[in-house]
Design a binder for these strands. Structure first.
Length: 772
DNA sequence: GCTTCTACCGTTTTT
DNA sequence: CGGTAGAAGC
């Protein structure tokens, strides 16, 4: 596409922002104003002007955004786009650090620890320091370490700063400094970095090594940053250093959409950008192309009172649109039913595909009643941005072997698989080696490799097992340089015994896990094939480079079946997306706005921005829902409508269509419980599957317990009839000689794929079995 | 070593 | 209530 054509596709504001290529530029892009378009066209324009793609650094907020932008640029100007430095802050600077980390003493193949790894490491540190107090919780510690690293305070500086030690003493966490130091050391020894380190060490490198700074300043002639309102101090400092020389930095963002303060994002970065760079050219994109006037105006009202913001006026030439319906429900499950019902009706009446609906919520925990309701009337849905494929247990197990092969010092990977599958290296053995490692200031792997040099008091049998393991890992490492990722991965998968272990597990979950591992290997094959003509890039090492940085949306999104589904997600996850129909659920005080924001500090601005983001995801219609009671910790609590509902002028809202049928006092709504577990009148209800409408086995719940799966369970597991239970979801009938002697059957419900596989068993009366 | 029982805690939001 | 860790039980 020629440059002229590119520029002709833009409106006047957008075009001006694209054409101003040099010097500091700030583009304030309101929601739905074509921000991505401006960024992509700007890059295309730069390339057309003859700027080398290698000289452009473009930073996005998610991998997905980077990928999509790259595709669009490719379609505009062709394959040159491949050479752009484009990605998230984390992945881009991980790439940079792989080249340069040797200067900081890290191996080029350093491992990236994800949150789980980091917590695991902290946990072992706490244990070793005998601090197993409940005051030192891994996640809290990690949170603090993270925010300190974001402020670029090293462990050394931390320990020597009386301000911090005083603060820790007050907080009764006097060992925190020591923990931070040990954590840092252990990461270093393990050849690993956590998420924050990727930014931290990039900063250190640029700060302390002038030749590095110069190199990258000269390399990145043009810097573009998307979602600038959500950058943190560490990211700010990287940008400041890199842009100092050429000052060609273009930041795009919307202060009204800054919603990540909790992880260190600093809205001041965007508010003060003009002070940072005195001759900044500022462009404002104020025309919204996405939503109806009603939605745009209502959204404007939501943030109108915020103190921290840049002046702008978002407007739209789109149609007026419907008023925003506000629906009240009695309970969270009714709220789900109402939403499901509306989706069903709209799909039927207007033939709207499922994918045009999104249900947004403030906290992940809210998804469950929504899911139940959707499942009940057979609406397909998908939770967007959930657990990454690469964070599943079985996948992490496999990856741990890969990681060990690449970097045997990786302690978390080692601990994860040293006794999986079982090879008789138990906790006590590992603990002994860990102590020896700490005493001698080496890694556990070093201890294992040089076992005879250490007095560990181990049995000969254990020593042999350890040596076997060492040789196993070494045999894996040996394969890496000469084979591609798939060959190496396949070799490790079978050599480690994982495949065999999983193959023996014939439970539905086990089969599912096996399929996931297969999927991983398929992924490796694709990866190897894609990089075939350049064998150096087809290695497992290369595949593993930024696996830890991938999120749930970076894998299976091309799957056809996955496409036409209603999407459920947190509002945070919805940033950057848009849908025709959006439901914003749980608009209740102390939920949205969250309790934290209400009581902790009277700081509701970010919550309002969050609401703003939620509203502006909608093109045609945004529907607000709330309920008067909600389950929390098992018991029902009553809720007040959110203050946000009052902050929108009534002219934009449509309260008439409230679900509240003739109002009933709350007491009436309590579902009467039968006095005992049996059916007193002897006529049990017939349950029909909402999916198939088939008559299900009518049941009467007698008792339910949770349990880990044991061999007996596996033995009796036979796929029987499908049963759905209001409370536990779906499950399969387990038969043990058909029926228990007392006329009850065992029904098994999955409670999900978590660390510990727990199944829920309910013993149920079989009253009628219409399947026969 | 493996299973089951018991006590405890928790809800923001995530690259 | 549901998930988890660690103790108790075999």
């Amino acid at each position: 596409m020629s440059d002229r054509d590119i520029l002709d596709e833009l409106n006047r504001e957008q075009r001006a922002a694209v054409e101003c290529t040099d010097g500091p530029v700030m583009i304030i892009a309101g929601a739905g104003s074509g921000k991505t378009r401006v960024l992509t066209y700007r890059i295309a324009h730069l390339l057309n002007k003859g700027v080398d793609a290698f000289g452009i650094l473009a930073l996005t907020f998610t991998n997905k955004a980077a990928r999509e932008m790259k595709e669009r640029i490719t379609s505009l100007v062709g394959g040159e786009a491949r050479n752009l430095w484009m990605g998230t802050f984390h992945s881009t600077f991980a790439r940079l650090l792989r080249r340069e980390a040797y200067r900081l003493g890290f191996p080029p193949d350093f491992t990236i620890y994800d949150t789980e790894d980091s917590k695991g490491l902290l946990k072992s540190i706490i244990k070793e320091m005998n601090l197993n107090d409940s005051t030192y919780k891994p996640s809290a510690l990690l949170g603090r370490i993270s925010s300190i690293k974001t402020m670029l305070v090293s462990s050394k500086e931390y320990i020597n700063d009386p301000h911090y030690s005083g603060e820790d003493r007050r907080m009764r966490r006097e060992h925190f400094g020591q923990i931070y130091e040990t954590y840092t050391k252990r990461l270093f020894k393990s050849g690993a970095m956590d998420f924050d380190d990727l930014l931290f060490f990039t900063n250190i490198l640029l700060r302390d090594q002038p030749d590095m700074l110069l190199k990258y300043q000269n390399m990145f002639r043009y810097i573009l940053v998307d979602e600038y309102q959500d950058t943190n101090f560490s990211q700010f400092m990287i940008l400041r250093q890199l842009a100092a020389r050429h000052q060609n930095i273009c930041v795009v963002g919307d202060d009204a959409q800054s919603i990540y303060a909790f992880r260190g994002a600093n809205i001041q970065n965007i508010l003060n950008f003009q002070k940072q760079y005195s001759d900044t050219a500022v462009f404002k994109l104020e025309q919204n192309y996405r939503s109806t006037q009603t939605i745009v105006n209502a959204a404007n009202q939501v943030i109108a009172k915020n103190r921290d913001q840049l002046a702008k006026k978002i407007w739209t030439a789109n149609e007026q649109g419907d008023k925003i319906p506000v629906l009240r429900a009695f309970t969270d499950s009714e709220e789900g039913r109402v939403i499901a019902q509306l989706i069903y009706e709209r799909r039927m009446q207007k033939n709207v595909p499922y994918r045009e609906f999104a249900i947004l919520y403030r906290t992940n925990a809210q998804s469950r009643p929504l899911e139940e309701a959707l499942r009940k009337i057979g609406i397909p849905y998908r939770i967007y941005g959930g657990l990454s494929f690469y964070q599943r247990r079985e996948i992490k197990d496999m990856l741990a072997y890969f990681r060990l092969a690449i970097n045997p010092n990786d302690e978390e990977a080692l601990r994860r698989v040293i006794n999986y599958p079982k090879r008789e290296i138990g906790d006590t053995t590992v603990d002994k080696m860990a102590v020896a490692a700490a005493d001698n200031d080496v890694t556990i792997w070093t201890v294992m490799e040089n076992l005879p040099d250490f007095e560990l008091g181990l049995q000969n049998r254990s020593r042999e097992k350890i040596m076997d393991f060492v040789n196993l890992i070494k045999s894996f490492s040996a394969v890496l340089p000469t084979h591609n990722a798939f060959q190496a991965g396949d070799f490790i998968a079978s050599g480690s015994g994982i495949i065999k272990e999983m193959f023996l597990d014939r439970t539905p979950e086990g089969i599912n896990r096996m399929e996931n591992v297969q999927e991983l290997l398929n992924g490796l094959r694709d990866f190897s094939l894609k990089a075939e003509n350049d064998p150096a890039t087809a290695t497992l090492n290369h595949f593993m480079e930024d696996i830890a940085l991938l999120t749930g949306e970076d894998v299976n999104e091309t799957d056809e079946n996955e496409k036409d589904k209603v999407l459920l997600m947190t509002i945070h996850a919805a940033k950057g997306l848009e849908f025709n129909y959006v439901f914003i659920s749980g608009l209740e005080e102390n939920l949205f706005p969250s309790q934290m924001a209400v009581i902790d500090r009277e700081d509701l601005e970010e919550e309002r921005r969050l609401f703003y983001v939620a509203l502006t995801r909608a093109r045609k219609n945004a529907t607000l829902t709330y309920s008067m009671s909600r389950y929390r910790y098992g018991s029902s609590v009553s809720c007040e409508p959110s203050r946000f509902l009052e902050e929108i002028p009534a002219e934009f809202l449509d309260n008439a269509s409230s679900t509240a049928e003739p109002y009933q006092p709350r007491e009436m709504q309590r579902i009467p419980r039968p006095p005992n577990t049996g059916y007193s009148n002897g006529t049990p209800p017939v349950i029909r599957s909402p999916l198939t409408n088939k008559k299900l086995i009518s049941v009467n719940k007698v008792s339910a317990t949770q349990s880990t799966v044991n061999n007996r369970h596996l033995e009796i597991l036979r796929a029987g009839m499908f049963v759905e239970h209001e409370r536990f979801g779906r499950g399969e009938v387990l038969k043990m000689d058909g029926i228990y002697p007392d006329g009850k059957a065992l029904i098994l419900f999955e409670t999900g794929e978590k660390k510990q596989l727990l199944l829920r068993f309910a013993r149920l009366n079989i009253v009628e079995d219409s399947s026969k």
